[in-house]
């Protein structure tokens, strides 16, 4: 295999997948830091975002890229509603109860999607586009947009978390919610902001995934495991770690089918999902707090 083949067929797809995982995992991790429990409905909210865009594509006649804002608004609304109706009412309960509640929310969202759209896979109908080719190096335009958006999101999030009052308050609350309350930080408002950001990222990841593959009610759930693996690898609750975690998992999944031995893939593509799980288990054994050292 030539170096160019490696770049075109393994490195680029790995990066693209990694970017989608990263966007999704940052959302999960950010919300975890504030809510203090892992939102099990994260994957299904991603599907929700994907279908919201589909509705916009179908009824407003706009392209999938232009429908991302619609997906964001709709997913944020869903997140705030779930927080208001379910999670928020379980305040003070054992965090495992919240996990169970999230599990239930996931199934409820999925049931709605199945009910409205049925189980068949659909696409936004983007059609086939000519890839960008340069000296044998090939990349799909949409993949460049994905990577570009991921970089933009990470930059914007970094500026938000380090330069704005609300962003700093969010980090403070993620560090120590009790101290944040004592300090006079309005924690309810921070929760709302966290949902707005977290759900927006979820929606973007969902639309990207649907653009790249196909939309189905199970699409997001299938991303739950790699998203968690990425978030835990990066140290759950740490958005920056989640970016690295997402890229690592995405690259590892694509590399797992490298034909290194006798032209056979290392791992049958059917087991790609298993890569994320294997990494997750390895992290849990070796360093459950994630690969990055945390202060204190």
């Amino acid at each position: 295999m030539s170096g160019l083949e490696f770049v075109n067929f393994y490195l680029i797809p790995g990066l693209v997948l990694g970017c989608i995982y990263a966007i999704s995992a940052v959302g999960l991790s950010l919300l975890f830091g504030i809510l203090r429990f892992a939102n099990f409905a994260h994957g299904d909210m991603m599907s929700w975002g994907g279908y919201s865009a589909l509705v916009a594509v179908t009824f407003l006649g706009i392209g999938p890229w232009a429908s991302i804002p619609v997906a964001i608004v709709s997913t944020v609304a869903l997140g705030l509603l779930v927080q208001r109706l379910f999670y928020g009412r379980l305040k003070g309960a054992n965090s495992v109860v919240l996990l169970i509640s999230g599990f239930g929310v996931a199934l409820m969202i999925r049931a709605i999607l199945y009910f409205l759209f049925g189980p068949t896979e659909v696409t936004y109908g983007l059609g086939i586009q000519r890839p960008f080719v340069w000296e044998g190096f090939r990349i799909q335009w949409r993949h460049m947009y994905f990577i570009g958006t991921a970089v933009a999101i990470v930059t914007a999030l970094h500026l938000f978390l380090t330069r704005t009052r609300t962003g700093k308050a969010m980090r403070a609350m993620s560090d120590n919610p009790d101290l944040a309350r004592i300090t006079g930080i309005p924690t309810d408002r921070v929760v709302t902001v966290a949902w707005v950001i977290g759900a927006s990222l979820t929606a973007v990841a969902g639309v990207f995934l649907a653009i790249d593959t196909q939309l189905s009610p199970l699409m997001g759930f299938n991303l739950l495991l790699p998203t968690f693996a990425a978030a835990i690898l990066g140290g759950i609750g740490k958005p920056y770690g989640a970016i690295v975690g997402g890229l690592v998992i995405g690259l590892a999944e694509e590399m797992s089918s490298l034909p290194l031995i006798d032209g056979q893939p290392l791992l049958t593509p059917a087991y790609k999902t298993g890569v994320a799980f294997a990494i997750l288990v390895a992290v849990l054994i070796v360093r459950p707090t994630g690969i990055f050292r945390s202060p204190q």
């Binding site: 009052r165 700093k168 308050a169 980090r171 403070a172 993620s174 560090d175 120590n176 009790d178 101290l179 944040a180 004592i182 300090t183 006079g184 930080i185 945390s294 202060p295 204190q296």
Partner: peptide, 21 residues
């Protein structure tokens, strides 16, 4: 409070800013 009374992943300056939130 007696324990856990700073935000460890914030800088000193950011900790102070939070006090003025």
């Amino acid at each position: 409070p007696q324990e856990r009374n700073v935000f460890p992943s914030l800088t000193v300056q950011e900790n102070l800013e939070m006090g003025a939130f």
